[in-house]
Computed example of a mutant assay.
Amino acid sequence: MHCLNKLLISFLLLCISGCSTLFFYPEKQLVRTPEQVGLAYQDVDIKVSDEVSIHGWFLPVEDNVEVKGTVYFLHGNAQNISTHLRSVYWLPERGYQVFLIDYRGYGKSTGEPLIPDVFHDINAGFLWLIKQPSVQQKPIYLLGQSLGASMSGYLVGTQPEMRDRLSGVILDAGFTSYSEIARHIASDNWLTWLFQYPAAWSMPSDYDLIDVVQNISPTPLLIVHGTQDVVIPYQHGKKLLAKAKQPKAFLSYTGGHIATFNDVGNQNLLLEFMQKFTPTKP
Score class of each variant (00 low, 15 high):
57 W>C: 06
35 E>F: 14
58 F>L: 08
275 Q>Y: 07
184 H>Q: 05
54 I>K: 06
68 K>P: 01
185 I>M: 10
277 F>W: 15
20 S>A: 08
76 G>D: 00
60 P>R: 11
11 F>I: 04
181 I>L: 09
50 D>T: 13
20 S>T: 15
235 Q>N: 12
150 S>V: 03
70 T>V: 07
278 T>Y: 05
254 T>Q: 13
196 Q>I: 02
252 S>C: 07
44 V>P: 13
267 Q>Y: 09
279 P>R: 14
197 Y>Q: 12
86 R>M: 06
224 V>D: 05
273 F>P: 02
59 L>G: 01
67 V>F: 03
151 M>D: 01
12 L>H: 09
166 L>F: 12
157 G>D: 01
236 H>W: 05
279 P>H: 08
107 G>F: 00
1 M>C: 13
241 L>F: 15
97 Q>I: 00
101 I>Q: 10
137 Q>P: 03
119 F>L: 11
91 L>T: 10
72 Y>P: 05
199 A>I: 08
100 L>C: 12
193 W>I: 00
88 V>T: 09
79 Q>F: 15
127 L>A: 11
74 L>G: 01
51 E>A: 15
198 P>M: 03
91 L>F: 11
216 I>D: 03
86 R>V: 04
58 F>R: 12
144 G>M: 00
75 H>M: 02
235 Q>D: 14
71 V>D: 00
85 L>E: 00
193 W>Q: 04
241 L>R: 01
178 Y>I: 03
125 G>F: 12
156 V>P: 03
234 Y>D: 01
182 A>R: 07
164 D>H: 12
191 L>A: 06
87 S>I: 05
67 V>E: 06
164 D>Q: 14
179 S>E: 07
41 Y>T: 02
66 E>P: 04
221 L>P: 00
176 T>V: 05
166 L>S: 07
257 H>K: 04
269 L>P: 05
184 H>E: 04
139 P>M: 03
280 T>C: 09
278 T>C: 13
240 L>R: 14
69 G>Q: 04
155 L>E: 01
76 G>N: 07
80 N>S: 13
262 N>H: 15
129 L>C: 10
64 N>K: 14
179 S>T: 07
135 V>I: 14
117 D>M: 11
61 V>M: 08
143 L>D: 02
260 T>N: 12
275 Q>E: 10
237 G>I: 11
198 P>V: 05
9 I>S: 13
